[in-house]
């Protein structure tokens, strides 16, 4: 499919142009507003001030960002892995689904900030509670979409595989898993930004490292340029992760209708 509709580089750049322009306009208006209104830096810093702060010490933001990113990704992988294992079991057994789904819903409806302090008590001040909180927050989307996706198979294809006496295992890997992919990617688009939220929330409660900790410290010192630097780094991280998921989705789901819509 990819080969059928190649997208020239020029067209890609053209597609990004409106985004670039709108970002530029927001930045210019923001800068002008601060200059005209004379807003003090501790309330809202101008974009130029934030840019200076970040360029003075880029290693600081990158280093702290890397810690948060590692926690978020670790949590995402753990949460998604557990969710997909549970989804596999639940997709095959109605009894298991009835037993486990209410528990999953319970986990989902409990606000993550309410549980976070508990995780610090249980798992200490290290990386562990942050990864677990990120895992908890990414668990539900992957679980629900996993169960739905593994069941959403073309009945004709299922019949055909059975007619050539495919085993349950073969049906699972050759039909159910690929059929579930569109559903899983829909879940990942939601849960990848959530994993960053989970990591930051975890850092608020206990950490001395990571962007969540940077935000808490900067907040206490009314150091808004650093605070905005951290926020900006988190935003870039979220965009990067979402783009990575989209790129992976286009590669893996090249056969799916959703990727034809440009």
């Amino acid at each position: 499919m990819r080969a059928a509709w190649p997208r020239p580089a020029a067209q890609r750049v053209a597609a990004l142009l409106p985004t670039a322009v709108s970002l530029l306009v927001v930045g210019v208006v923001w800068e002008a507003w601060i200059a005209v209104a004379g807003t003090p830096v501790y309330l809202v810093p101008a974009p130029s001030v934030v840019a200076v702060r970040m360029s003075v010490d880029p290693g600081y933001f990158l280093g702290q960002g890397a810690i948060t990113l590692a926690e978020a990704l670790g949590g995402f992988l753990l949460g998604t892995g557990v969710a997909l294992s549970a989804a596999t079991a639940m997709a095959h057994s109605l009894v298991l689904e009835r037993a486990l789904l209410p528990l999953a819903v319970l986990v989902k409806v409990t606000p993550i900030v309410a549980v976070a302090p508990l995780f610090v008590i249980w798992f200490g001040f290290g990386v562990m509670p942050k990864v677990l909180i990120a895992a908890l927050i990414t668990f539900f989307p992957a679980l629900v979409n996993g169960v739905t996706g593994l069941r959403a198979v073309n009945p004709g294809a299922l019949d055909f595989l059975r007619s050539v006496s495919a085993s349950r295992r073969e049906v699972f890997f050759r039909l159910r898993v690929p059929s579930a992919m569109p559903y899983l990617f829909a879940a990942f688009r939601v849960s990848i930004p959530l994993s960053v939220i989970g990591a930051v929330v975890g850092e608020w409660f206990s950490a001395d490292r990571g962007l969540g900790a940077v935000i808490i410290v900067a907040h206490a010192n009314l150091d808004t340029p650093t605070l905005f630097g951290a926020i900006f780094t988190l935003a870039v991280m979220g965009i990067g992760l979402s783009l990575a998921v989209s790129a992976l989705e286009r590669r893996i789901l090249f056969w799916h209708e959703s990727t034809f819509i440009v």
Binding site: P155, G156, F160, L161, S163, V164, S165, S167, R174
Partner: peptide, 29 residues
């Protein structure tokens, strides 16, 4: 594997090429 089935819907696997779809019964079991 003595029976071959053709259904009302083609029900091919969209992520496999045409040739790989025809190979599927050989790949299974």
């Amino acid at each position: 594997k003595l029976i071959g089935c053709v259904f009302q819907e083609p029900a091919l696997l969209p992520w496999r090429t045409v040739l790989d779809n025809v190979r599927l019964p050989l790949a299974v079991n």
